[in-house]
């Protein structure tokens, strides 16, 4: 009964957090932007073809975004009601976390689509940027300017910790195709990709060609923090899942998975909203030829 109560509570929290709370924050942010920074005054914020009927287009996209999230929310509560009606309880031997993970993946689809849309928007912004003046700050950017070494250390320790814990509990005799090898290689690849994202942010081209340097630094800091927190959470989750197998806590696997998903969202989307508040962004750079002023 307790397991059932915990599971339902955590799943409701997942539904509300991913498909209601953060979508609401996102739409509020875009609405604020449209209301306060119109195309007439901030033309660089609306590169073609976004400049045509920018407001109507954005409002239409926002409506679609709200609708899809609402649909997922209703579907989630529908599934939850059906589970309650059938008296569902997580299986003692685990395995139900797959459904939590799948539903979580569906919940993140609208967020992924907005990420892809944002990337396309910035690409377009770069394409239409005809400015002949380029600015750069005369200060070096280094990893530890953006994040405390303690967090990096914790991420490394947790990864090594998981590796030791996992390898001590796995079979490697059956060749390279065994799940153990796939897990180790997959996890290493994931860590390398995240490290690549961190390096790209420090050394690579800035995403928004007009962005003020202060905002760029803030964005780099937020992205690096998100990446490191994701590594910390991922390794903690992997250790927890291995411990769950070892100490027969599998009945809590769906709860652990849901909590993991929620923490990932809190430390990615949530951190982004907290750190880069739209009210604090320097929008003067998006005015016409601001560099001449």
């Amino acid at each position: 009964m307790l397991v059932q109560a915990i599971f339902y509570t955590v799943f409701v929290a997942q539904l509300l957090l991913v498909s209601y709370y953060y979508p609401r924050k996102f739409t509020a942010r875009i609405s604020y932007l449209l209301a306060n920074y119109p195309p007439e005054q901030y033309p660089k914020l609306y590169p073609k073809p976004y400049d045509y009927h920018a407001e109507n287009g954005a409002k239409k996209s926002l409506r679609a975004y709200r609708f899809v999230n609402g649909l997922i929310l209703v579907a989630g509560f529908g599934i939850l009601t059906a589970m309650l009606a059938s008296g569902y309880t997580p299986r003692l031997l685990g395995g139900d976390e797959v459904f939590v993970l799948l539903f979580g993946a569906v919940q993140t689809v609208p967020h992924m689509i907005t990420e892809i849309g944002t990337a396309k928007y910035f690409k377009r912004m770069k394409e239409v940027d005809i400015s002949t003046t380029k600015k750069a700050d005369l200060r070096p950017r280094r990893l530890f300017d953006f994040i405390s070494p303690a967090y990096i250390g914790l991420a490394v320790i947790l990864y090594i910790g998981w590796l030791v814990f996992f390898l001590g509990n796995s079979e490697f005799d059956a060749g390279l195709t065994t799940p153990a090898y796939v897990t180790v290689i997959g996890t290493a690849t994931m860590h390398l990709l995240i490290t690549g994202v961190i390096m790209m942010n420090i050394r690579g081209l800035k995403v928004d060609p007009h962005q003020a340097y202060r905002d760029q630094l803030k964005q780099i800091e937020t992205t690096i923090r998100i990446c490191v927190f994701v590594i910390i959470l991922m390794n903690s989750f992997l250790i927890l899942m291995d411990a769950s197998d070892r100490y027969a806590w599998e009945v809590f696997d769906p709860v652990f998975t849901s909590l993991y998903l929620q923490l990932i969202i809190i430390f990615s989307l949530g951190l982004r909203f907290r750190k880069s508040r739209v009210e604090e962004v320097d929008f003067s750079v998006y005015k016409e030829d601001v560099w001449l002023v």
């Binding site: 380029k134 600015k135 750069a136 005369l138 070096p140 950017r141």
Partner: peptide
């Protein structure tokens, strides 16, 4: 005196990337 003796400068790669040159 916007930069002082001993101040670190960005690497060649960073400055080139930032200035797109």
């Amino acid at each position: 005196e916007l930069v002082a003796p001993g101040d670190a400068l960005p690497s060649i790669r960073q400055l080139a990337t930032d200035l797109r040159m």
